[in-house]
Design a protein around this nucleic acid. Structure first.
Lengths: 134, 134
DNA sequence: TATTATTTGTTCGTATGTATA
DNA sequence: TTATACATACGAACAAATAAT
């Protein structure tokens, strides 16, 4: 599976492989991934490289780490619908440190930012909120 | 500045330090950060640790790397306003690999996903698009 | 209750590759 | 051509938190 002579970096190849398993449902939401050491042994890689791959998946929001229990495929959160008021503008970005704390956001989860006509901005956790235009 | 005896990981302390410089404007959009080697020397850290800190800022969308010129404070992109049609739902998440390619997204930039009442979903680069409710 | 094993987190070091000025 | 700077990948060691014995 992993091709050291390939153009694509080894850690990206491992991330691709795990991502495919997640997207295909082979690794379902809530499932635990093999441990870093296990992945390193199975694919003949260093743990450093395995961690790079997992870090990639974390930044994509596909897995969450519950230390030291293991790394798990993210389970979708229940979504709250919030109606947009007239004149509102919607953007999205990665959260600031304080937003991460306030919303208890995990890696790879953006915030939705709603700016009212008067300039007041409110941010929402993008994994638990959808905005609606009624 | 960096306290090895502190509870917070050194690479997080360095990320905090650089983040503060960016947020205060001390490092302005378009400015180049000190090189990894320079940061490592200045703060008496390994380059690995410096890279962890910069990787954190990349995943937050605060800096972009133009290899091998250097690492730069991200410059805001011109924003296109797109009106929401009635019944649309808006969410945000990190892009898939194909979305990253298609929209030429850099690290730490989410996508805005608009789902029409018929279920058709469209994704937009969150650094160049804002959605409006007219 | 105490100890051990497991697993992720942090940090160091080293080496080589690649793209740019 | 050379120097610079980031990217990738290896290895090693210890810490911290949870689970198992």
């Amino acid at each position: 599976m992993i091709d050291h002579s390939a153009d694509r970096a080894v850690f990206r190849q491992l991330a691709d492989l795990l991502r495919r398993q997640i997207e295909s449902g082979d690794l379902a939401p809530g499932d635990i991934l093999p441990s870093e050491l296990r992945l390193a042994e199975d694919h003949k890689l260093s743990r450093t490289t395995v961690r790079q791959a997992i870090g990639q998946l974390r930044s994509e929001g596909l897995v969450t780490v519950d230390r030291p229990r293991g790394t798990f495929v993210r389970v979708p959160e229940p979504v709250e619908l919030i109606p947009l008021t007239t004149g509102a503008r919607v953007s999205a970005r990665m959260p600031t440190a304080s937003e991460r704390r306030r919303h208890r956001l995990r890696d790879g989860v953006p915030v939705l930012v709603v700016t009212a006509p008067d300039g007041a901005a409110t941010s929402y956790p993008a994994d638990r909120v959808q905005l609606t235009r009624p």
